[in-house]
Design a protein around this nucleic acid. Structure first.
Lengths: 207, 207
DNA sequence: AAGGTATGTAGACGCTTGTTTACTTGTCAA
DNA sequence: TTGACAAGTAAACAAGCGTCTACATACCTT
């Protein structure tokens, strides 16, 4: 077993001489791997799969380019691992179907207010075009969004309703990217939450 | 080797003399330009900006790669011209605000049923990631979707409501791409239209 | 202290991209 | 018929990509 480093590194400069009396090993596979994963998570969320290069990831992590492939096999595999590390909407679903539309709306409205959509959504709406990552993305989306939501709804058309709700969630990502969120902030957060709640209710309602 | 040029041009506009066996000019700037534009429109809609190469466009149009830049200046400019050639939702908006949610829903449901979203939507949800085309895309979306819709709605929060509706439209594109539309076809077209109508009504309702 | 090995590095490989250049060839007016 | 000019072509350019290989170095065990 390897001693776990409890230190959460900030983005440190690679060639930096030891600043203080830090005796931490300068070579740490686990830490480097983690830095790469976190850098990839942030960059994919910001720019999408296609427009993030492995050199960008390595640079942000203060690591060598070759380590991306050494530790993750390939850029696509790294993307898959990033997705797998996302918790998704688990917390929202855990509370059951009661009040679900409002909880979804609140979550989305909060993200709008902060201009901080979930990494999953951000990665997604900027990575849709790539046929290489599409299966990874699809599987992830099914697992963390559609299937839990479908299970929560019950009934024959549960999947249709879940997909309709997914349309709003994914659409918000596209809107954020393509139009910006300024328009949505014209109304106050409460009014926006109410509107989104109504939209989710319409999407999730039994037919 | 020469003259392997694929000349599968259908009988097109330039006035063809009826009588003589005289062949139509094998060099036709306007026709070539149009073929390039149409090929680009279809390919961008199918694969998104990033994953369409100028060589794919030229190949599909039966033209030389260099002509893309000769006739349009650049790939990005060609993309802009493709967007500009789209009519968008003009017809839906022309009929006024009455019954607008249902008309939008019907249009969307029809596209779902046929698996043929509008070229604008298809291009859009697959081209979001590229910072080079984002301004072009944003401007187009504002012009053909948000602004007409906002004008139709009137009122202080018109823009918020228009953006909420855009969320559904754009989200449908993402869903189609990421999840496929099979789930949405579990319910019959009428039920789907009803559900979408309710969603658009919720999005467009005054606060 | 020494050496084996895991960790990190530098650089190049092969390929693809958008774009440009130099050239050939068809068309049409004179 | 002829020659100028437009239309189309082939090839190369520079840059960027993901990936891989050979090498250097820090660390841990002995």
């Amino acid at each position: 077993m390897r001693a776990q480093q409890a230190v959460d590194l900030p983005a440190d400069a690679p060639g930096q001489p030891p600043g203080g009396g830090d005796a931490r090993p300068r070579r740490d596979r686990a830490a480097t791997r983690r830095r790469l994963l976190e850098a990839a998570r942030d960059l994919f969320a910001e720019h999408g799969y296609d427009h993030v290069t492995v050199r960008m990831i390595a640079g942000a992590a203060g690591a060598n380019v070759a380590l991306v492939n050494r530790y993750f096999g390939s850029k696509a595999a790294l993307f898959g691992e990033v997705l797998a590390s996302e918790s998704g909407l688990h917390a929202v679903f855990a509370e059951g179907p009661e009040g679900l539309p409002r909880r979804l709306a609140e979550r989305l409205a909060r993200q709008v207010a902060q201009d901080r959509p979930s990494p999953m959504i951000r990665s997604l709406d900027r990575s849709l075009g790539n046929p290489e990552v599409l299966p990874i993305l699809r599987r992830h989306l099914e697992t963390v969004l559609v299937e839990p939501l479908t299970a929560l709804l019950e009934g024959p058309d549960a999947r249709v309703r879940a997909t309709a709700a997914a349309t709003i969630l994914l659409g918000a990502g596209s809107v954020r990217r393509a139009l910006g969120l300024d328009a949505l902030r014209e109304s106050d957060p409460e009014a926006l939450t109410d509107r989104l709640t109504a939209m989710f209710e319409a999407a999730l309602a039994p037919s």
